Amino acid sequence: MAPTRNLVRDEELGAISDDDDSPSGKRSKLDRFPLSRWELAVSLGVFLVFSSGLCCIYMTMPAAEFGKLKLPRSIADLRLLKDNLANYANEYPAQFVLGYCATYIFMQTFMIPGTIFMSLLAGALFGVIKGVFLVVFNATAGATSCFFLSKLIGRPLITWLWPDKLRFFQAEIGKRRDKLLNYMLFLRITPTLPNLFINLASPIVDVPFHVFFLATLVGLIPAAYITVRAGLAIGDLKSVKDLYDFKTLSVLFLIGFISILPTILKRKKIYE
């Protein structure tokens, strides 16, 4: 059954690629919304369930000046938010952590930009150890939710948005089935592919959930540590770009290379 499914997927992706070769195909791709009515209804239903849960959590939290609370979009917004939340987090630690986790998982599930600011906020408010634990927990939980949401309705969306990248990812996964965990760890540790794409594409190309989960849980730790630690010195940051300079990226790729070293050594033995 697996080869048949892969053949069908290849044909679907090939059909998309053929449409993209002509100007009319590109126009039709932009004009055609990929989700059917049923898929759109399911996605809206899931969104409403998560939104209702988030609202219920906020309604049970102690009163705060909600006019000052907003999702940060810049380092300046983050500094202001941190100042407004510091006393609240000290007075109501359990309620604050619950609200923080719910917000982070919601954003990660529905691919809402800004989780990197939430990670910086964790460092600024909770310190390195608690901050890394919170970020890895929430990022893994949100990625898991996104994985199952994509498994339900993601195929038409991702083949519409990234047909070439999906075809490449499927080919790479097919070549590395015997050491798939190492490869997924490499992808999670390094910025080779966006985490958003990995979350959406993994169920489409038949990455087993246990491999996806373990690679996410372990592979996000290095980047989470870097981001959370930067949150301790949030006053020195000028932009998000300062987080990932050449030195930081080199370290991440070094860790990623170590994760795929067993695969490289095994191939070398085979060819010898």
Rank of each mutant, 00 (worst) to 15 (best):
I260C: 10
G219F: 01
G174N: 13
G53F: 02
P262Q: 05
A64H: 11
A2N: 14
T109M: 03
D19A: 15
F212E: 02
G67M: 05
F257R: 03
S250F: 14
K179S: 14
F147M: 00
Y88L: 08
L40A: 15
F213T: 09
N84W: 03
D77I: 02
S239M: 06
S52Q: 12
P156W: 03
R167C: 05
L180T: 06
A143N: 06
S250G: 15
V46W: 01
R188T: 11
W162S: 11
P34Y: 07
T190G: 08
F147S: 00
G235D: 12
A233G: 13
R37Y: 10
A171D: 11
A89R: 08
K151S: 13
Y104D: 06
L134Y: 09
T227D: 04
D20S: 12
G256N: 03
K241R: 15
N87K: 12
L265W: 09
A224Y: 05
D20V: 05
L81W: 04
D18L: 14
L71Y: 01
I57G: 08
R37S: 14
F148D: 10
S145C: 15
W160R: 11
E272N: 13
E11Y: 11
F246S: 12
L44F: 10
L13A: 02
Y88Q: 02
G154Y: 02
L152A: 14
R188K: 08
K70Q: 11
F66H: 12
K247D: 10
Q170L: 05
W38T: 15
L149V: 02
P62H: 10
K241N: 14
F126L: 10
K82M: 09
A143S: 13
F213C: 08
E65W: 01
R176S: 14
S28L: 14
P23L: 13
F212T: 01
I75Y: 04
D21Y: 07
L254E: 06
K82L: 09
L120Y: 04
C101A: 15
A86K: 13
L181D: 04
L249V: 12
V251W: 12
I173M: 10
H210R: 13
Y92I: 02
F209T: 07
E39V: 07
K151Q: 14
F186G: 06
L237N: 11
P3F: 05
R37F: 11
D20W: 10
L80I: 15
Y271E: 15
G235I: 06
K68N: 12
V8N: 06
I16N: 00
S74K: 05
V135F: 04
P113I: 08
S17M: 13
G53W: 01
E172R: 13
